[in-house]
Simulated assay, not measured.
Amino acid sequence: MTESYLPAELVALARRVVEENAALGRKVAVAESCTGGLVAAALTEIPGSSVVVDRGFVTYSNEAKQELLGVASDIIDTFGAVSIACAWAMAEGALKRSRADVAVAISGVAGPAGGSDQKPVGTVVFARAMRDPTDPEAGDAEERLFPDNGRPGVRLQAAICALELLLP
């Protein structure tokens, strides 16, 4: 087996996500903005991931969030793309536009520019939505502020957090 180009801790976590979701017969979808497909790349690095990974959406622009995931423009206009409301709408949209049982969404400010006093570089929002609303893990959303250790560091930390949200 050849070595992955991705960080070992990311691949190890992706392996857990694939194995644990496969054991439950669960499919996953991801809706990514600031991570730009890093979560999907980590998941699909794992042999046999096609049993678990249904699809991934890279919706970097606001227009992509609206067109591909159905995020309402008033959510973005009112709360911004880096908001719990937007992440939640992204996760719900990924569920509606897939066959997944669980979807996770990520949107944030990876830097080095783009931050503000309200949303500094390193601000990332996450949401997890489940197809079964009675599942005790059905909905979860949070905002995190990761240390600004450069764009790659923020993106990696965000991808790790998103993968953790996909663990059963």
Results as ranks from 00 to 15, higher is better:
Glu3Tyr: 02
Ser4Glu: 07
Leu6Ile: 10
Glu9Ala: 13
Glu9Phe: 04
Ala12His: 10
Leu13Arg: 09
Leu13Lys: 01
Ala14Glu: 12
Arg15Leu: 12
Arg15Cys: 06
Arg16Leu: 12
Glu20Gly: 01
Glu20Phe: 10
Asn21Ala: 06
Ala22Ile: 03
Arg26Lys: 12
Ala29Ser: 11
Ala29Gln: 11
Ala31Cys: 09
Ser33Val: 10
Thr35Gly: 02
Thr35Gln: 10
Gly37Ser: 12
Gly37His: 00
Thr44Asp: 05
Thr44Asn: 09
Pro47Tyr: 00
Gly48Pro: 07
Val51Ser: 15
Val52Asn: 08
Val52Glu: 02
Asp54Ala: 07
Arg55Thr: 01
Thr59Phe: 13
Ala64Leu: 10
Leu69Ala: 15
Leu69Lys: 11
Gly70Ser: 03
Val71Glu: 08
Asp77Pro: 04
Thr78Ile: 03
Phe79His: 15
Gly80Gln: 11
Val82Gly: 07
Ile84Thr: 14
Ile84Lys: 07
Cys86Asn: 06
Ala87Glu: 06
Gly93Asp: 02
Ala94Arg: 05
Leu95Asn: 00
Lys96Asp: 12
Lys96Ser: 13
Lys96Asn: 14
Arg99Trp: 10
Ala100Ser: 14
Asp101Lys: 00
Val102Met: 09
Val102Phe: 02
Val102Tyr: 01
Val104His: 03
Ala105Val: 10
Ala105Cys: 08
Ile106Gly: 00
Ser107Thr: 15
Ser107Pro: 08
Gly108Pro: 01
Val109Glu: 04
Ala110Ser: 14
Ala113His: 11
Gly114Met: 03
Gly115Tyr: 03
Ser116Asn: 07
Gln118Pro: 02
Lys119Arg: 13
Pro120Asp: 08
Gly122Trp: 00
Thr123Arg: 08
Phe126Gly: 06
Ala127Tyr: 04
Ala127Thr: 00
Ala129Pro: 07
Met130His: 14
Met130Arg: 06
Pro133Ile: 05
Asp135Trp: 10
Ala138Pro: 05
Glu143Gly: 12
Pro147Cys: 07
Asp148Cys: 00
Asn149Ile: 11
Asn149Gly: 15
Pro152Trp: 05
Gln157Met: 15
Ala159Glu: 04
Ile160Arg: 11
Leu165Phe: 01
